[in-house]
Simulated assay, not measured.
Amino acid sequence: MTSSSSSTSKAAETAKTATTALTQPASETSPAVSSFLHHPYTRVALPFLNGGLAGMAATTCIQPIDMVKVRLQLAGEGGKSAGPRATPISVTREIIAAGKFMDLYTGLSAGLLRQAVYTTARLGFFDTFMGALTTRAEQKGEKIGFAGRATAGLSAGGLAALIGNPADLALIRMQSDGLKAKEARANYTSVIDALRRISRSEGVYALWKGASPTVVRAMALNFGQLAFFSEAKSQLKTRTDWGLRTQTLAASALAGFFASFFSLPFDFVKTRLQKQTRAPDGSLPYKGMGHCFGTVAKEEGLLRFYRGFGTYYVRIAPHA
């Protein structure tokens, strides 16, 4: 009887242990995994790694949308458009008709490299800055506010954009290459090929062409995306009884809208500056960010900066 009770007790204990192992994270059941995940260096690296992988996954999904967005921004450049105004549907049809469906994924290697560098850095920096600001606020017996989140978002976006500009430039060059006459196309085979040929023909510093609007665009994007996401999620948590997933999706939708609104004009100028190449006489269509804003406003109208807002929002929202 005693032996039977002992066996039953051991079986129950074994079953409980197995259930715990299946339901709890590995970090809570495995000392080795827990030690690795909670190591100071790992804690610092994880936000960067998670951010980069998330950005690369999102880019793989929305690359065709990004391709259409870039073509919309370049359509009718100089106010000399012929025929009806370009729309997301007409641009998509044109790309597919001119080649094949996979042409919508042109520049994917550059997009992935950009996310590996830019998104890894911006989300990692944002998490790091937020951690530092939160610690400082707690020491003062306060809670971090919207201003702190905005500061962290602006700083993280600007620094990351400067680091990732070469990959961003390569992405725009690859996506706009199909707009040129066949004999004038560069026909880049990969992001590495694009970076190598651009630096060889135009100089290494050319890889940072359009860096100013890229940095401003990233700061505006992060201000709208990260600051508003963090603020919206905080407000939804205290003001609603929604589930965590619903709160996250709602906060992402709001953050995506504000990120698109604040950053689209700068994204437009960035695309125009990074696409341009020197004419035979050495001149460029735009001398800089200010000149591009002025020229486009004069020749194409102020609303040109927001054309394709819906496409841009759909492109931004998955990243949020």
Rank of each mutant, 00 (worst) to 15 (best):
I144A: 09
S283W: 04
L49I: 15
A251P: 03
T23M: 13
G282H: 07
A250T: 13
D193R: 00
P265D: 08
K237M: 12
G301M: 07
E202P: 01
A211T: 07
Y41S: 11
S5Q: 14
V269D: 02
K143N: 13
I163P: 03
T246V: 14
A194R: 01
S3A: 13
D66C: 14
A220H: 00
Y312V: 03
A156F: 00
A116T: 11
N222L: 03
I95T: 06
G52I: 12
R200M: 07
P280H: 09
F129S: 01
F257G: 02
L302N: 05
M67P: 03
T106N: 07
K270S: 15
M56A: 13
G243H: 03
G301I: 11
C292I: 07
E300F: 01
A167E: 02
L49W: 10
G52F: 07
G210W: 02
A45R: 00
T271K: 06
H39F: 08
Q24N: 14
S212W: 04
G290N: 10
L236H: 03
A26R: 05
D168E: 13
L226C: 03
A116H: 10
T87G: 15
G78Q: 08
E300G: 06
K180D: 09
P318T: 08
A160L: 06
A147H: 04
M130F: 05
G290H: 09
T8W: 12
A232L: 06
S260L: 03
S34T: 02
L195N: 02
L254H: 01
T119F: 10
T60P: 08
S230T: 07
I96F: 12
E300A: 07
L171D: 03
R136K: 14
A26D: 10
V70C: 09
C292G: 05
F261G: 00
K180T: 08
R173V: 05
F266M: 06
T271E: 11
L108V: 12
R136I: 09
L207K: 01
S176I: 03
T277H: 02
A184R: 06
N187W: 02
G111R: 02
V117F: 00
G210D: 09
Y188K: 01
L207V: 09
R196K: 13
W242H: 05
R304P: 07
G141A: 10
G288I: 08
G124H: 00
G124R: 00
T119H: 09
S35W: 15
R245T: 15
L162A: 15
A45C: 10
T29N: 05
G55P: 07
Y41M: 10
T2E: 14
A227K: 02
A232W: 00
K180I: 04
A194F: 05
M219H: 01
S263R: 07
S212P: 03
L113A: 14
L221S: 06
Y205S: 01
L154P: 01
L113C: 11
A54N: 08
F129N: 01
Q276G: 06
L162Y: 04
R272E: 11
F229L: 08
M130P: 02
R217C: 12
H38C: 03
M1R: 10
R239E: 15
N222Q: 10
T238L: 06
R114H: 13
A253D: 05
